[in-house]
Protein backbone atom coordinates (compact mmCIF):
# COMPACT_ATOMS: atom_id res chain seq x y z
CA UNK A 1 0.00 0.00 0.00
CA UNK A 2 1.41 3.24 -1.08
CA UNK A 3 2.13 6.07 1.26
CA UNK A 4 0.81 8.40 -1.40
CA UNK A 5 -2.74 7.35 -0.63
CA UNK A 6 -2.53 9.60 2.41
CA UNK A 7 -2.47 12.49 0.02
CA UNK A 8 -5.04 11.47 -2.55
CA UNK A 9 -7.99 12.10 -0.27
CA UNK A 10 -6.60 15.46 0.71
CA UNK A 11 -6.48 16.63 -2.86
CA UNK A 12 -9.88 15.36 -3.81
CA UNK A 13 -11.31 17.47 -1.00
CA UNK A 14 -9.34 20.40 -2.34
CA UNK A 15 -8.10 20.85 1.14
CA UNK A 16 -4.71 22.38 0.47
CA UNK A 17 -4.24 23.91 3.89
CA UNK A 18 -3.58 20.62 5.65
CA UNK A 19 -1.07 19.32 3.12
CA UNK A 20 2.45 18.76 4.33
CA UNK A 21 4.15 19.73 1.07
CA UNK A 22 7.54 18.54 2.09
CA UNK A 23 6.08 15.19 3.03
CA UNK A 24 4.24 14.93 -0.30
CA UNK A 25 7.42 15.63 -2.22
CA UNK A 26 9.28 13.07 -0.16
CA UNK A 27 6.64 10.45 -0.80
CA UNK A 28 6.72 11.12 -4.53
CA UNK A 29 10.49 10.75 -4.49
CA UNK A 30 10.09 7.39 -2.75
CA UNK A 31 8.19 6.11 -5.80
CA UNK A 32 11.33 6.73 -7.92
CA UNK A 33 9.92 9.42 -10.17
CA UNK A 34 12.93 11.54 -9.25
CA UNK A 35 13.41 14.76 -7.28
CA UNK A 36 12.78 17.06 -10.25
CA UNK A 37 9.44 15.60 -11.28
CA UNK A 38 8.41 15.29 -7.64
CA UNK A 39 9.00 18.99 -7.17
CA UNK A 40 7.11 19.79 -10.35
CA UNK A 41 4.05 17.80 -9.30
CA UNK A 42 4.08 19.21 -5.82
CA UNK A 43 4.33 22.75 -7.21
CA UNK A 44 1.47 22.17 -9.61
CA UNK A 45 -0.76 20.83 -6.86
CA UNK A 46 0.14 23.82 -4.78
CA UNK A 47 -0.82 26.29 -7.50
CA UNK A 48 -3.79 24.65 -9.20
CA UNK A 49 -6.57 24.32 -6.69
CA UNK A 50 -8.73 21.95 -8.74
CA UNK A 51 -5.97 19.51 -9.60
CA UNK A 52 -5.91 16.06 -7.99
CA UNK A 53 -2.83 13.96 -7.41
CA UNK A 54 -3.97 11.24 -9.81
CA UNK A 55 -4.58 13.73 -12.59
CA UNK A 56 -1.25 15.41 -12.02
CA UNK A 57 0.56 12.09 -12.22
CA UNK A 58 -1.57 10.92 -15.13
CA UNK A 59 -0.68 14.00 -17.12
CA UNK A 60 2.94 12.92 -17.05
CA UNK A 61 2.00 10.03 -19.30
CA UNK A 62 1.88 10.70 -23.00
CA UNK A 63 -1.19 10.02 -25.08
CA UNK A 64 0.40 7.47 -27.37
CA UNK A 65 -0.90 4.25 -28.82
CA UNK A 66 0.29 1.55 -26.46
CA UNK A 67 -0.53 -1.48 -28.58
CA UNK A 68 2.26 -3.37 -30.30
CA UNK A 69 2.82 -2.22 -33.85
CA UNK A 70 2.53 -5.03 -36.37
CA UNK A 71 4.22 -5.12 -39.75
CA UNK A 72 2.26 -4.65 -42.96
CA UNK A 73 3.38 -8.03 -44.12
CA UNK A 74 4.40 -10.69 -41.60
CA UNK A 75 6.59 -11.43 -39.79
CA UNK A 76 6.44 -8.55 -37.34
CA UNK A 77 9.97 -8.16 -35.99
CA UNK A 78 10.33 -7.23 -32.33
CA UNK A 79 13.78 -6.46 -30.94
CA UNK A 80 14.13 -6.72 -27.16
CA UNK A 81 16.93 -4.77 -25.46
CA UNK A 82 17.97 -3.73 -21.97
CA UNK A 83 20.60 -3.79 -19.25
CA UNK A 84 21.76 -6.99 -17.57
CA UNK A 85 19.23 -8.66 -15.32
CA UNK A 86 16.29 -6.44 -16.27
CA UNK A 87 14.29 -9.48 -17.37
CA UNK A 88 14.69 -9.54 -21.15
CA UNK A 89 14.70 -13.29 -21.69
CA UNK A 90 11.76 -13.81 -19.36
CA UNK A 91 9.86 -11.00 -21.10
CA UNK A 92 10.58 -12.51 -24.52
CA UNK A 93 9.21 -15.83 -23.25
CA UNK A 94 6.10 -14.23 -21.80
CA UNK A 95 5.45 -12.11 -24.87
CA UNK A 96 5.84 -15.15 -27.11
CA UNK A 97 3.43 -17.08 -24.90
CA UNK A 98 0.91 -14.24 -25.07
CA UNK A 99 1.07 -13.93 -28.85
CA UNK A 100 1.03 -17.72 -29.24
CA UNK A 101 -2.08 -17.93 -27.04
CA UNK A 102 -3.73 -15.37 -29.31
CA UNK A 103 -3.22 -17.78 -32.17
CA UNK A 104 -0.17 -16.23 -33.78
CA UNK A 105 2.82 -18.26 -34.91
CA UNK A 106 5.95 -17.04 -33.18
CA UNK A 107 9.68 -17.54 -33.60
CA UNK A 108 12.00 -16.49 -30.78
CA UNK A 109 15.67 -15.77 -31.46
CA UNK A 110 18.39 -16.14 -28.84
CA UNK A 111 20.79 -13.43 -29.98
CA UNK A 112 22.31 -13.28 -26.51
CA UNK A 113 25.43 -15.22 -27.34
CA UNK A 114 27.39 -13.76 -24.45
CA UNK A 115 25.85 -14.78 -21.13
CA UNK A 116 26.42 -18.39 -20.22
CA UNK A 117 23.32 -20.50 -20.93
CA UNK A 118 21.19 -17.60 -22.18
CA UNK A 119 20.27 -19.62 -25.27
CA UNK A 120 19.30 -22.63 -23.17
CA UNK A 121 17.17 -20.39 -20.95
CA UNK A 122 15.19 -19.11 -23.93
CA UNK A 123 15.07 -22.59 -25.45
CA UNK A 124 13.46 -23.88 -22.25
CA UNK A 125 10.82 -21.15 -22.45
CA UNK A 126 10.21 -21.88 -26.13
CA UNK A 127 9.73 -25.59 -25.48
CA UNK A 128 7.27 -24.87 -22.69
CA UNK A 129 5.26 -22.55 -24.91
CA UNK A 130 5.61 -24.61 -28.07
CA UNK A 131 7.25 -22.03 -30.32
CA UNK A 132 10.37 -22.25 -32.49
CA UNK A 133 13.63 -21.06 -30.99
CA UNK A 134 16.59 -20.12 -33.18
CA UNK A 135 19.98 -19.73 -31.52
CA UNK A 136 23.65 -19.50 -32.32
CA UNK A 137 26.77 -20.86 -30.70
CA UNK A 138 28.12 -19.11 -27.62
CA UNK A 139 30.22 -16.19 -28.75
CA UNK A 140 28.67 -16.16 -32.24
CA UNK A 141 28.00 -12.79 -33.86
CA UNK A 142 24.60 -11.78 -32.47
CA UNK A 143 23.70 -9.87 -35.64
CA UNK A 144 24.23 -13.02 -37.71
CA UNK A 145 22.13 -15.06 -35.30
CA UNK A 146 19.36 -12.46 -35.43
CA UNK A 147 19.49 -12.45 -39.21
CA UNK A 148 19.24 -16.25 -39.32
CA UNK A 149 16.30 -16.15 -36.93
CA UNK A 150 14.41 -13.59 -38.98
CA UNK A 151 15.19 -15.50 -42.19
CA UNK A 152 13.78 -18.64 -40.67
CA UNK A 153 10.67 -16.79 -39.53
CA UNK A 154 10.19 -15.48 -43.06
CA UNK A 155 10.64 -18.97 -44.51
CA UNK A 156 8.21 -20.45 -42.01
CA UNK A 157 5.71 -17.70 -42.70
CA UNK A 158 5.61 -16.86 -38.98
CA UNK A 159 3.52 -13.92 -37.74
CA UNK A 160 6.02 -12.70 -35.16
CA UNK A 161 9.72 -12.97 -34.57
CA UNK A 162 11.03 -11.80 -31.20
CA UNK A 163 14.76 -11.24 -30.86
CA UNK A 164 16.33 -11.53 -27.41
CA UNK A 165 19.63 -9.64 -27.09
CA UNK A 166 22.41 -9.79 -24.52
CA UNK A 167 22.10 -7.49 -21.55
CA UNK A 168 24.38 -4.49 -21.75
CA UNK A 169 24.96 -1.48 -19.57
CA UNK A 170 24.19 1.63 -21.56
CA UNK A 171 27.63 3.09 -20.93
CA UNK A 172 29.37 0.43 -23.03
CA UNK A 173 29.61 2.17 -26.32
CA UNK A 174 30.94 -0.82 -28.25
CA UNK A 175 28.05 -2.99 -27.11
CA UNK A 176 25.54 -0.25 -27.88
CA UNK A 177 26.95 0.01 -31.40
CA UNK A 178 26.51 -3.73 -31.70
CA UNK A 179 22.76 -3.26 -31.07
CA UNK A 180 22.59 -0.81 -33.95
CA UNK A 181 24.33 -3.38 -36.09
CA UNK A 182 21.85 -6.09 -35.12
CA UNK A 183 19.04 -3.81 -36.19
CA UNK A 184 20.68 -2.86 -39.49
CA UNK A 185 21.47 -6.47 -40.38
CA UNK A 186 17.98 -7.68 -39.49
CA UNK A 187 16.42 -4.93 -41.58
CA UNK A 188 18.09 -6.34 -44.66
CA UNK A 189 15.58 -9.14 -44.29
CA UNK A 190 12.53 -7.48 -42.73
CA UNK A 191 11.78 -4.12 -41.08
CA UNK A 192 11.86 -3.95 -37.28
CA UNK A 193 8.41 -2.90 -36.05
CA UNK A 194 9.10 -2.61 -32.35
CA UNK A 195 12.18 -2.08 -30.23
CA UNK A 196 11.21 -2.82 -26.65
CA UNK A 197 13.41 -1.63 -23.80
CA UNK A 198 13.01 -3.87 -20.78
CA UNK A 199 13.26 -1.91 -17.56
CA UNK A 200 13.49 -3.43 -14.08
CA UNK A 201 10.68 -1.91 -12.01
CA UNK A 202 13.02 -1.37 -9.07
CA UNK A 203 15.46 0.73 -11.10
CA UNK A 204 15.97 4.24 -9.89
CA UNK A 205 17.00 7.38 -11.74
CA UNK A 206 19.49 5.45 -13.85
CA UNK A 207 16.43 4.43 -15.88
CA UNK A 208 16.55 7.81 -17.60
CA UNK A 209 20.09 7.24 -18.71
CA UNK A 210 19.08 3.79 -19.96
CA UNK A 211 16.13 5.19 -21.88
CA UNK A 212 18.18 7.91 -23.53
CA UNK A 213 21.14 5.70 -24.45
CA UNK A 214 19.14 2.80 -25.83
CA UNK A 215 16.97 5.19 -27.81
CA UNK A 216 19.95 6.84 -29.40
CA UNK A 217 21.40 3.42 -30.26
CA UNK A 218 18.31 1.63 -31.62
CA UNK A 219 15.30 3.99 -31.47
CA UNK A 220 13.30 2.40 -28.67
CA UNK A 221 9.57 2.34 -29.48
CA UNK A 222 8.23 1.12 -26.19
CA UNK A 223 9.01 0.08 -22.62
CA UNK A 224 8.41 -3.20 -20.89
CA UNK A 225 8.30 -2.61 -17.15
CA UNK A 226 9.17 -5.78 -15.24
CA UNK A 227 9.15 -7.08 -11.68
CA UNK A 228 6.17 -5.00 -10.68
CA UNK A 229 5.09 -7.74 -8.29
CA UNK A 230 7.65 -6.59 -5.73
CA UNK A 231 7.54 -3.63 -3.40
CA UNK A 232 8.76 -1.14 -5.97
CA UNK A 233 6.35 1.03 -7.91
CA UNK A 234 8.25 1.55 -11.12
CA UNK A 235 7.97 5.32 -10.93
CA UNK A 236 11.14 5.62 -12.99
CA UNK A 237 9.23 4.40 -16.04
CA UNK A 238 6.88 7.31 -15.57
CA UNK A 239 9.89 9.59 -15.55
CA UNK A 240 11.13 8.05 -18.81
CA UNK A 241 7.78 8.44 -20.47
CA UNK A 242 7.46 12.03 -19.25
CA UNK A 243 10.94 13.12 -20.24
CA UNK A 244 11.71 10.98 -23.30
CA UNK A 245 8.23 10.39 -24.66
CA UNK A 246 8.65 6.62 -24.92
CA UNK A 247 5.37 4.89 -24.08
CA UNK A 248 5.22 2.06 -21.55
CA UNK A 249 3.62 -0.78 -23.51
CA UNK A 250 3.78 -3.89 -21.40
CA UNK A 251 4.20 -4.79 -17.75
CA UNK A 252 5.58 -7.96 -16.21
CA UNK A 253 3.90 -8.90 -12.97
CA UNK A 254 5.30 -12.27 -11.94
CA UNK A 255 7.32 -15.31 -12.82
CA UNK A 256 4.62 -17.26 -14.65
CA UNK A 257 4.37 -17.40 -18.42
CA UNK A 258 1.10 -15.51 -18.40
CA UNK A 259 2.30 -12.76 -16.08
CA UNK A 260 2.51 -10.08 -18.74
CA UNK A 261 -0.14 -7.51 -19.54
CA UNK A 262 -0.66 -4.40 -21.64
CA UNK A 263 0.09 -1.24 -19.71
CA UNK A 264 -3.00 0.50 -18.40
CA UNK A 265 -2.36 4.09 -17.36
CA UNK A 266 -5.30 4.32 -14.96
CA UNK A 267 -4.56 1.23 -12.96
CA UNK A 268 -0.85 2.06 -12.94
CA UNK A 269 -1.51 5.49 -11.47
CA UNK A 270 -3.97 3.96 -9.04
CA UNK A 271 -1.31 1.50 -7.89
CA UNK A 272 1.24 4.29 -7.65
CA UNK A 273 -0.97 6.31 -5.33
CA UNK A 274 -2.13 3.18 -3.52
CA UNK A 275 -5.77 2.94 -4.39
Amino acid sequence: MSLLSRFTSLFTREDRASVDWQDLEATLIASDIGPTLAKKISDRLHDEKKLTLEVALGELLISADRSLVSAESPPTVILVVGVNGSGKTTSVGKLAARLHAQGASVVVVAADTFRAAAREQLQTWATRIGVTCVGGKDGADPAAVAFDGVSQAVDQGADYVIIDTAGRLQTKEGLMDQLGKIRRVVEKKAPVSEVLLVLDGSTGQNALSQGASFTSAVQVTGLVLTKLDGSSKGGAALAIEATLGIPIKLIGTGEGLSDIAPFEPDSYIAALVGR
Partner: peptide, 15 residues
Protein backbone atom coordinates in the same frame (compact mmCIF):
# COMPACT_ATOMS: atom_id res chain seq x y z
CA UNK B 1 22.05 -5.76 -4.83
CA UNK B 2 22.02 -4.08 -8.22
CA UNK B 3 23.77 -0.69 -8.09
CA UNK B 4 21.00 0.76 -10.26
CA UNK B 5 18.28 0.07 -7.71
CA UNK B 6 16.12 3.02 -6.79
CA UNK B 7 14.40 4.05 -3.60
CA UNK B 8 13.08 0.53 -3.11
CA UNK B 9 16.59 -0.68 -2.16
CA UNK B 10 15.72 0.18 1.43
CA UNK B 11 12.54 -1.92 1.48
CA UNK B 12 14.21 -4.86 -0.20
CA UNK B 13 17.21 -4.77 2.09
CA UNK B 14 14.95 -4.60 5.13
CA UNK B 15 12.81 -7.47 3.84
Amino acid sequence: VDAMTGQDAVNTANA
